[in-house]
């Protein structure tokens, strides 16, 4: 599913934020990415969801060597990835419903085809009564749940989440992790970057730790 071989990354001409990172995410695996702030977790996720290019090394995604892909091939790959951004990145002018429906619109589906799924998912994350609320009127926790619903609504092959439970109470955090586990059971490969030890301990998933841009396998 995802393979990194001796990957290095730097922003512009700055220092390397990732160094010689090598790992493989098998299809259907569930992995936590941990490490202190500034260790490079978000940068590593950016490489996986194709927001940045590596400075060196080899990245293979869904069996494709990214260095050999044409730019026109990338949107199809990106649509197979669901991302929960740390800062949510919701569209403030769209309702919670329209934000969650966005990946399905991008996939070319019509509203009649996805309306029920989106409403059910928003109800599942506890926002059934706030379908048409705009993000600025939602609390941090509610925005986070909309962001998670948006990332999972298209049942992506790969789900990446950056601190997905940082703004919700423990009960909702547990509910969300159950959503990820459920999705993983149906075949989605999941990688979650988090500091939340309770979240990590609640599953027996693999843990990879980044320290100063280098990857250390903690729990296979």
């Amino acid at each position: 599913m995802v393979r990194f071989e001796n990957v290095g990354m730097r922003y512009a001409s700055g220092p390397e934020v990732l160094r010689d990172v090598s790992f493989t995410l098998e299809s259907g695996s569930f992995t936590f990415l941990t490490g202190p702030s500034g260790a490079g977790k978000s940068s590593l996720l950016k490489l996986v969801f194709l927001a940045e290019r590596p400075s060196r090394g080899l990245v293979t995604l869904f069996g494709c060597d990214l260095a050999r892909l044409k730019r026109a091939d990338l949107p199809a790959l990106r649509r197979r990835i669901g991302v929960v951004f740390q800062e949510f990145r919701l569209l403030d002018h769209l309702s919670a419903f329209d934000n969650v429906a966005l990946p399905l619109r991008l996939a070319g589906l019509r509203p009649a085809e996805y309306r029920r799924d989106v409403e059910e998912l928003l109800s599942w994350v506890g926002l059934g009564a706030r379908l048409h609320a705009k993000p600025p009127t939602l609390s941090g926790g509610e925005q986070q749940r909309v962001a998670i619903a948006r990332a999972v609504v298209a049942k992506p092959d790969l789900l990446l989440a950056d601190e997905p439970t940082g703004n919700v109470d423990p009960d909702m955090g547990e509910r969300l992790i159950r959503l990820f586990v459920e999705l993983n059971r149906f075949g989605t490969t999941v990688m979650i970057a988090t500091h939340d030890r309770a979240l990590i301990e609640s599953t027996r998933a693999r843990e990879m730790r980044l320290v100063d841009g280098r990857l250390i396998e903690m729990r296979a």
């Binding site: 419903f97 309306r115 989106v118």
Partner: peptide, 15 residues
């Protein structure tokens, strides 16, 4: 609910 009633169902997803 009140917030669901704000936009007709057929208009949802056309933002």
């Amino acid at each position: 609910t009140r917030s669901q009633a704000r936009i007709p169902a057929k208009e949802r997803g056309k933002g």
